[in-house]
């Protein structure tokens, strides 16, 4: 590569060459600058774009094709058309795991209400609030696998912590993870506890950014604490609520680790199995990669549709303060 004379030209602009009119020259310089900048822009844009192509778009296209095949994940694929998708609707375990997965999402509103209340409480000047904030945030930074194992012990029917505490109040607790009626609530409680700190932190930040002038004005108008909460705090943290609902639903649709650790066989009568757990089992235990991929695509579509609906609803309800 030959070195271009450009730096010298920029360095000594006072001596234009005779054959080039000054105006053209400055335009060319600008073009050159533009090109250089452009290249740099491309350089910075390239990593995520290449990453997207190699690790997202290509796998998606590949999966879309794989979902139309009978494939064990090792050998050649055999094209079977929409057969896998037709089977999906007749597969009672798929439908059950889908139901379970959405059942777990009951924890999302519960978690949001609790974390908002916590955020309000910890926004006050109570003694030891930094310590409390830390305590509530610790589960967020802990390994999910470790947490699931600890909760698995806690839920043990005979010597688990949960039933010991219940026994103080004279309640005989069930064997939480072995009972079709309690296994999902048990996992929801754990998931809410785990996610509380994260939502609380975002709410705390949102509450602190509400202008105090709004509260002062409301006080002058004679608004009570609840009215202020309802008409000022709640609308002002709305964007955070929206963000949390969307991300929680997407994450909730992918629930896997806690299910696999706490109920390795999918729970009694398949009562705790989530869609992703079932996909994983079909793909890697039973080597039905084609069928499992079809389930994954179906789950992806469901999540996509739900998210689009949420954005629509949010747009319709949004407002701004002028």
């Amino acid at each position: 590569m030959s070195r271009s004379p450009a730096p010298e030209a920029i360095a000594v602009p006072a001596e234009p060459r005779a054959d080039t009119p000054p105006t053209t020259r400055s335009k060319r310089d600008r073009n050159r600058l533009h090109r250089v900048e452009h290249r740099w822009a491309l350089a910075f844009v390239a990593p995520p774009v290449i990453g997207f192509l190699a690790f997202t778009l290509y796998p998606i296209l590949f999966a879309a094709y794989a979902s139309l095949t009978s494939w064990n994940g090792l050998g050649p694929m055999r094209f079977v058309g929409l057969k896998n998708y037709v089977s999906l609707f007749q597969d009672e375990y798929f439908l059950k795991s889908l139901w379970n997965t959405f059942f777990y999402m009951i924890g999302i509103p519960i978690g949001l209400v609790l974390s908002l209340l916590l955020a309000i409480a910890l926004n006050r000047k109570i003694p030891g609030r930094t310590a409390f904030r830390t305590i509530y945030y610790i589960p967020v930074v802990s390994s999910l696998a470790a947490i699931a194992i600890v909760w698995q012990f806690a839920y043990n029917g005979d010597f688990g912590l949960v039933n010991q505490v219940l026994a103080w109040f004279g309640i005989e607790g069930p064997d939480w993870l072995q009972n079709t009626a309690t296994v999902k609530p048990a996992i929801i409680i754990m998931a809410v506890w785990k996610g509380l700190g994260y939502s609380m932190l975002l709410y705390l930040a949102a509450i602190q950014s509400v202008p105090t002038s709004l509260y002062e004005a409301a006080s002058l108008d004679g608004a009570g604490a609840f009215q202020k909460f309802r008409s000022i705090t709640l609308p002002m943290v709305r964007p955070v609520t929206f963000f949390l609902v969307v991300t929680n639903i997407i994450a909730g649709a992918q629930i896997f680790t806690e299910i696999n650790i706490m109920t390795p066989t999918g729970g009694p009568e398949f009562s705790s199995a989530s869609v992703v757990w079932y996909i994983w089992r079909k793909a890697f235990k039973y080597q039905q990669m084609g069928y499992a991929t079809a389930m994954a695509i179906a789950l992806g579509l469901i999540v996509f549709v739900i998210t689009v609906i949420q954005f629509r609803l949010n747009r319709r309800n949004s407002f701004s303060i002028e």
Partner: peptide
């Protein structure tokens, strides 16, 4: 090509 271009490429 100048240095910056080389670096970018």
């Amino acid at each position: 090509m100048n240095r910056k271009k080389i670096a970018a490429t």
